[in-house]
Structure formats: C-alpha cells, structure tokens
Amino acid sequence: MTARIPHSALIIVLSVGVLLGFGVSLSVGPAQIGPLEGVKALFAADGSPQAVVMQDIRLPRAILGVLIGATLGLSGAVLQGYLRNPLAEPGLIGVSASASLGAVIAIYTGFSLVFPLALPLMALAGAAVAGGVLNALAGQRGHTLTLILAGVAISSIATSLTSLALNLSPNPFAAMEIVFWMLGSLEDRSMQHVWLALPLMAIGWAMMLSLAKPLDALTLGEEAAATLGVNLRRLSLVAVIGTAASVGAATAVAGAIGFVGLVVPHLMRGVVGHQPSRLLLPSALAGAIMLTVADVGVRVIAPQSGLKLGVLTALVGAPFFLWLILSKRRSLL
C-alpha cells in the first residue's frame, strides 16, 4: 500500500488533533467551568478554586494523557516492527504487567514513602526484568512466536504476583487497587506525576525513534539487515530498553493501559503504508489522540463512578483484536 497523504501533511493533521484533544481534555470535568473561564483560570495566579482545578487537576491529567498515549503508540509501532508480528504491544509482551508489579512492590512495602523515586525506579526495574527475559529469548535469533508466548507467560506471572501482593496486603483498600494497576486511570494525577514520568519517557522515545532506519532494514529479514550494517544485538537492546523505560514510566503513574499500543500502529499502517520508519511518529501522535479521547470518554460517560481508562480502551481494542486475528487467518489461507 502506498501513502495517499504526504507524510508531512499527515504529521500536521495529527498534531492538530493532539492539540484539539488536549483542549477538550482540559475543558471536561465534574466542576462546571466554561471554556473561556477555564483558559483564564489556567494562567491565573490567585489560587481561586477554578485556578486550582485547572492547574493542579486538569492540566496534569491532560498532559499525562498525551504523554502516555504517545508512549504506547510509539512502543507498539516499534515492537511490531522489531518483532515483525502484528500482535506485539507492550501489554502483550509483559512489559506493562511487570512494571505494575514493580510499582506495587514499591508502594506496598512502604519503600516509596521512604524514597519517592523508588516507585518509578521499581516500575522501571520491573519492565527491565521483563525486557531482559525477552531479550535473552530474542537474542539467539528467537522465533517471534516463542517471544510472544514468553511475553504472555511473563505477563500472566507478573499479573498474578501483583494480585498476590495486593491480596496479602493488610490494607483494606488493596483489593480495590488491583483494578487500578490492571486497568489504568488518569484520575486525580498531579504535576508531580508528570515530572516523575517525563524524563524516562523522553529517554525511551529518543531511543525508539533512533531505530527508524534499522527497522526499515529489518523488513528485508535479519540476514539482509545484518549485511546492510545493522547491529541486530544493539537493535534489540535499544528496542527493549526504550520500550521498558517509557512504558515503565507510564505504568508507574497511570497503571497498565492496554490495547492502545496494539491498535494504533495498525490504524496508521493503513494510512502510511508498511514502512516501519514512517509509522513511528504518526503512531505516537495517534496514540496521544486515542488515549486523550478515551480519557475524555471516561469522564463524559460515567463521571461519578470512576470508570477505568483501560476498560474503555479494551472495549474498543478487543473487538479490533478479534477482527485482526480473523483477517490474518484469511490472508494466511
């Protein structure tokens, strides 16, 4: 398939979409604040309730929606390109679940209270362990199917250990919090969370975006890529660490949000074609739009009940997943 829209035009359209989504995200919430009033309150320094709501509650939420969506979209595109498997995404290969486990351990051991950076670092460590195991399996010219299966296994081990940790926690709220770590939410996050996640996400993005050329070469097969001068060992290391850093940071502040990383690269592939390098930036932008829209949806559909973000993305994502399997089966026949 060839691109029907020029790449630069697509980037501009998607960027405008991100900005629009960001604006809508800022103007939706249980408190009744008009758009104009909201913009004024965003820059007000008077500490009025409106200013506090806009600056301390809605702004971090909107920023995190964009950052995390971009992270998931980009890492999905990189993983699908690197593994050459349409089902790859950070959730499927166990990176999100392992990051959740790390965060849960940091919180429930009380470690995060003693040392605030423990939370993102443990989430990152969780993601890194998952990445390391995957890398060990992929390094020896791992069959992609083996890798996916290993990812599923890692994912379910991490998920059950997370449940175990919460199950054994004497805190009465622990059971409710399983839901947060498995479905994700941007409810009542603060700027502290933005500053916590942003540096690691940015490092992860830079690593993943640097893979554009090697990923293109990889479409010709590993041997051909190696003859073109691609260092396969380095490629897999950068892909896994980049994903682990950015997704680990995203998960540490918002829990594991599924399906965005899976769906978005497929949607974008229909527009930009199959070249992995052209897929990266559009996937990041479209991921940001998708997550922001989902987060607006969560607030509009059930403002009082605390509907979790992951429920909405999974509701949209799961049928797509089924359709993907069906169409793949057809093309294999």
């Binding site: 009380g110 995060s112 926690s169 805190n171 709220f173 919090e177």
Partner: peptide, 9 residues
C-alpha cells in the same frame, strides 16, 4: 497499616 494508593489523593 502499610500505605496504599487509596491515601494518595
């Protein structure tokens, strides 16, 4: 009791 996310708000 040990800390929980519930108190973070």
């Amino acid at each position: 009791h040990p800390p929980a996310l519930a108190h973070e708000v």
